[in-house]
């Protein structure tokens, strides 16, 4: 189970690191090399994004990575193949991240069972709130996968508690309003927000959106269990190449 893996890991580390990549960007071969580099640099779990043509919750960096991946011919099948290669090669948990239309078109149940077959551990689908996702949530339960739900600073405490009824594995708290890739202010307000999240759920908390450097992660120690890095590794790769991603990740620890 994802949660017990995280708890076990947390006995040895103050805070865990989850990274994100867009599958097929710049190519599937490169995606695999990036995964390998990240795992070797010590990340604890990874989100593998299946690209979508209209990713409304993503900012420019990830949006363009989605587009480039699709332009170079990334398909859902290709993404699953690569994800399977990753779960066979490395023994950290991998999650799928995508938008609702991808599993919907694939067939929700078929999608979920494909994840299970490939040893993927859960999924993050930002445009599928539980109100619309009953079928998906049931399928995830049936296959014992973790549906990772999102909490935002605009979520009321009552709603946080109701989301907690559906969440498994951990809860993904987004640090601020807006889309991925913009700057976040790591301030006391963020601490207050995270303590509200803590009240609403007993699951581990992941915090994402805007984490760029070690200081951000140090701030989160004791307040969240997982720090999520998204756009910043893509920027690093774009500027300095795949190998520098490893150094970047090691610089955060």
């Amino acid at each position: 189970m994802l949660e017990s893996y995280l708890r076990e890991r947390l006995k040895k580390k103050d805070i865990l690191l989850m990274t994100h990549i867009v599958l097929g960007y710049p190519s599937f071969d490169d995606s695999f090399r990036i995964i390998e580099t990240m795992v070797k640099a010590g990340v604890d779990l990874m989100e593998l994004q299946i690209p979508f043509s209209d990713p409304i919750a993503d900012g420019p960096v990830i949006l363009r990575a989605n587009q480039r991946a699709l332009e170079s011919g990334a398909t859902v099948q290709g993404c699953f193949d690569l994800a399977e290669k990753a779960t066979r090669a490395f023994d950290i948990p991998f999650l799928i991240m995508s938008y609702c239309n991808i599993p919907y078109r694939y067939g929700t149940k078929r999608f979920v069972s494909s994840m299970a077959t490939r040893n993927l551990r859960g999924a993050i689908i930002p445009d599928l709130p539980p109100e619309e996702g009953q079928e998906y949530l049931n399928d995830m339960k049936e296959f014992d996968l973790a549906p990772i739900l999102i909490i935002s600073p605009t979520t009321t405490i009552e709603r946080m508690k109701s989301l907690d009824n559906f969440a498994r594995g951990f809860v993904y708290c987004i640090a601020r309003k807006g889309v991925t890739g913009e700057t976040t202010n790591f301030s006391d307000d963020l601490g207050v927000y995270l303590s509200q999240c803590r009240e609403a759920t007993s699951l581990p908390l992941a915090l994402g959106f805007g984490i760029k450097e070690k200081a951000d992660i140090d701030f989160l120690k004791g307040k969240a269990e997982i720090a999520v890095i998204g756009s910043q590794t893509i920027r690093t790769m774009e500027k300095k190449g795949i190998d520098s991603v490893g150094n970047f990740i090691r610089s955060l620890g």
Partner: peptide
Amino acid sequence: MMNRGYYGKFGGAFIPEILFSTI
């Protein structure tokens, strides 16, 4: 929880959590 804004099987509100309270 309620599904709102459906016309037959079409419609709904497939929105990121951040927009939930705004909607």
